[in-house]
Design a protein around this nucleic acid. Structure first.
Length: 226
DNA sequence: AACCAGGACGTGA
DNA sequence: TCACGTCATGGT
């Protein structure tokens, strides 16, 4: 009996419950918010984002979190918020040095400053429209995962997100071959899973939560070793 | 104190 | 196509 994505999803959801992604700096507090080291989650509220500001925040967060711990991204987002730069117009008004300084905690600040400026320009050209996946991929600095994150969380389009954690888990469970690429991994996830935005959002977030707990690359420091 | 984090791009073979 | 180097800060 092969392990299907449905079985995995149901077990993860039973274990961890709704994750409330994508985390936002601020949102309607009437909905339950996960407390802990990192705020901003909004379990069971699938109506976010409700403003263009939140939509833009998700997009730049998706860029800033490339190969970077979310905690560091949060610092960068707070810095940008403090200079009122969570908006395409304001972000483009910043000098390179000001922008780099604000996002420094998220690492790769030279690259990411360029990526944010490129995306902000694209955002303004886009207007109110929902970007197609290919349009996002054509923007320098936006690859498959970032594009899917933007569409799934910022624009509520049912694009399944594959990240390193998802690959690691599915490979370990022998659901996909070791050399599976993005699209092959995505095909496994999409096949059999209810193609709705809430399910896709939760599934991605649940993979991350599960991997953080059980798929660390190396064991955590053991006090026995001094 | 090394190891790695919610990737993407440029390069050479 | 593809394997590999580069980008960089901060938590554990």
């Amino acid at each position: 009996m092969p392990v299907t994505i449905t079985i995995i999803y149901n077990r993860l959801f039973d274990t961890y419950g709704p994750q409330g992604w994508w985390p936002l700096l601020e949102h309607d507090g009437s909905n339950p918010t996960r407390t802990g080291d990192i705020g901003g989650y909004h379990p069971e509220n699938y109506r976010l984002p409700e403003t263009q500001r939140q939509q833009f925040e998700i997009c730049i967060g998706a860029i800033l979190t490339q190969n970077t711990a979310w905690m560091n991204v949060e610092k960068a987002l707070h810095n940008l918020d403090n200079i009122n730069a969570i908006s395409a117009e304001r972000l483009l008004e910043l000098s390179d040095d000001t922008l780099k300084d604000a996002i420094k905690p998220s690492g790769y600040f030279n690259m990411k400053a360029k990526k944010l400026q490129g995306f902000a320009t694209f955002w303004l050209e886009l207007g109110q429209r929902t970007p197609k996946r290919d349009e996002l991929l054509a923007v320098w600095g936006i690859g498959p995962e970032t594009a899917d994150c933007m569409r799934l969380y910022a624009w509520q389009e049912p694009d399944f997100v594959i990240d390193a954690y998802t690959r690691r888990i599915l490979e370990h469970l022998r659901c996909i071959p070791a050399d599976a690429d993005y699209d092959e991994t995505r095909a496994f996830c999409v096949d059999g899973l209810e193609p709705t935005v809430p399910v896709y959002q939760e599934c991605h977030a649940l993979f991350v939560e599960h991997a953080k707990r059980h798929y660390a690359r190396r064991p955590l420091a053991d006090p026995l070793l001094g």
